[in-house]
Design a protein around this nucleic acid. Sequence first.
RNA 1: GCCGAGGUGGCGAAACUGGCAUACGCAGGGGACUUAAAAUCCCCAGAGCGCGAGCUCGUGCGGGUUCAAAUCCCGCCCUCGGCACCA
Length: 853
Amino acid sequence: MKGEPYDPQQIENRWRDFWRDRGHFRADTGRAERKFYYLNMFPYPSGYLHVGHGRNYIIGDAIVRFLRMRRHNVLNPMGWDAFGLPAENAAIERGIHPRDWTLQNIAYAKDQFRAWGIAYDWDREVTTCLPDYYRWTQWLFLKLFENDLAYKKRADVNYCPSCQTVLANEQVVGGECERCGTAPERKTLDQWFFRITAYADRLLADLAQLDWPEHVKKMQENWIGRSEGATITFPTEIGGAISVFTTRPDTLWGATFLVLAPEHPLVDALTVPERRAEVEAYRRQSGRATEIERLSAERDKTGVFTGSRALNPVTGEPIPVWIADYVLPTYGTGAIMCVPAHDERDFAFARKYGLPIRVVIAPSDGPVPDPRTMTGAYIEPGTMISSGLLSGTPAADALARATAYLEEQRLGERAVTYRLRDWLISRQRYWGAPIPIVYCDRCGTVPIPERDLPVLLPDVPFIGKMGLADISGYADTSCPRCGGKAKRDTDTMDTFVDSSWYFLRFVSPREEEAPFVSDDVNRWLPVDLYVGGVEHAILHLLYSRFITKALYDSGYVSFTEPFKRLFTQGMVCHTAYKCPQHGWLYPKEVNDQRCTKCEQVIATSYFSMSKSKKNVVEPADIIARYGADTERLYTLFMGPPDRDIEWSEDGIRGAWRFLNRAWSVVVGEISRLTGSTVDLDPATLDPDGRALWHKLHATVKKVTEELGDRLGLNTAIAAIMELVNDLSSYVERLEADPQLVRRVVRDLVLLLSPFTPFFSEELWHRLGERQPVLETPWPEYDPEAVRGDEVEIPVQINGKVRARVRMATAAAADRDVLQATALAWPEVQERLRGQEVQRVVVVPGRLVSIVVR
RNA sequence: GCCGAGGUGGCGAAACUGGCAUACGCAGGGGACUUAAAAUCCCCAGAGCGCGAGCUCGUGCGGGUUCAAAUCCCGCCCUCGGCACCA
């Protein structure tokens, strides 16, 4: 059928601003009936967005359009995570101000959203680097400070020499700076921390109530790292005592030495004069190593003896006290008791330095290991031996008994320790929210009063790597308390602070008296569905949860978790080429598997799209060739949204072909349909018409369920493709019913609209509809029609399908009728001849299974 | 090492609660249209055996439960992600 060809450029230009002009995505936060707060993780504006970034927003846009048509009051805002180091580094490279670079990127990204047809409520846009936002980030700091959740401490920190700033523990990945890959150094600085550890238990416990992917919850659980055990006190020979944390108080009778972190406060006192030089040397040496180096498991354990002894509290035996840098000052008490017989690490250390080993758990079968000949720690279960009153206890019960005994004897107590550390938020860089604190000689550390916020970033020419400390005059101020001379804190806050509360601001983004309006926020939060990348599974999500709980405790919000449901979409991967000599290559630099510069054979692999690997696909190119609808459709169709997918040029052509097919079938029918407005009576349709009628309803049901709940957008699209295939075949027929065709075409256009909004709006308009798609209700399905007239029921004989029985749907739903029909079916009769039927299993509406002989 | 997710045609994948394995799409083969090509349309397509009706095998591997297993259970292998000297 010839007709006007599908021309996406023209169509998309026509509708691009339509949804915004009609205010389709302007939420009414003044009321909350049928409210739905949909949120995409907001982007960091770093140049342009590629098709991989697009996936996140396209998924969201499809869901949100669907919800709008289902008459939800949808809040769908967007903003910019606009502070941070990359902007600063990029600005340095280009010799411009990070603010200009950032605002420029924001403008560009907004154009990209517009080209994609992604319709946000732009009236609610927030930009974290603007004073009307960061003013409230500073407010948040003050609230945490008031509640003793922000504190300053002198600490050994990870300092990235390349970024010239400190990194949070979380920002050191695999021993390297998360941003630039440089190995951090250790530095001792006065830094601000947020006391997230105070919430460790609640952050862990409340995971249970979240509808989040299981693996993300597990990652948070690991990160928090709760360990139950006991702290035990070991008196020392010189007086005083050393407290250790252990998860194995039951093995206390086997503790033959103690090890302290080199930084432990008691090391000085414990070191005997003859050992002083050696201990000092060791402390200096380990002080140079970063925490990451110290923790590398491959590294041989080293340590030195302090010369002092402590007393094992249960055996009374004097045991040596060592220091070693595999013991971390920041975990537990910074000191451990060592039970070499039953712990691999302690065993290795004891063997290396010839320390005594004492076995306290005997295998239930086989001989007790001999400390002199053991080659590894015995870590299997068994029975306690040489353990005083615990001897003879099965190891499984020993833990509880040991803990009870220690508490009774006041030698120690039950304790819980976390892997989670407090959140270091000070950064020595310019492009962030200034910390609203001054230091006064007379009054000490003084918070800036709320009414004086924001503490503005000084507006100075940007001259490369610098912090606020480098800007003359910034630090000099007067004390808000006494009016005397004072110095400002010259650090800015970690950007994760900015993003740990932005979801609150979206509800009342222009509020000038407060960061958010509690009543409105309490009505609209938690976010109903939060969609973003797994890369934020720990940091951003954990910090946001912590801030929400802190605000809850001080009465600003009435909910304890910010994101009810989380969905993490997979990454988009693409072929990347690497030349052994020239590194990553653009596809155009590759010819016949060889580098065009040096003719060497290149290596081909798949990676998530990134500028550094030169394997990004630009939406502008795709949109110019195929249109945004094709990109959207392909992005959603190529795989389940939560899985990584591989971008392929062939795949996108498939999506393009489908839209062309759908276009021509709809456009081709329009002339036939004019005037066919009478409601159709499905009862009058012929069998082919009935079949299409059934397919339509089944498709509506499928697409509705996938979009509304399972988020299986790929299978929703597959179902629509099937409908188009069936519709094309049907309209080929001379006696096609125009009423039915009209109905199918209408619903088809609506079903497609969340995925291909331009395409649908255009066809909808051409079908003569006056009301825009988004103001039209989502198609309904009739369960009766979904069932269909006839079904084919497979009949199994001894587990193998041997026949298919066609019968009325209602008859197949009746167990007895189905069984009788199946047994009487000729092919079945044939098969059963001469066989004895032992059993017949009937699943109404589904299957019949016959067991013979 | 610990924790988690996954492994299905040539490829991306589907099968939702144990019930017809491979829907939908890509690539491929054959045909139609065309002077030709592109585009489009129609047909074929898990593997093996058989002239054929058909039969056998088949969801990483090996067992098991069941009338029936991609799906449940036991034991392995591989890939990816997180954590990892956290006491």
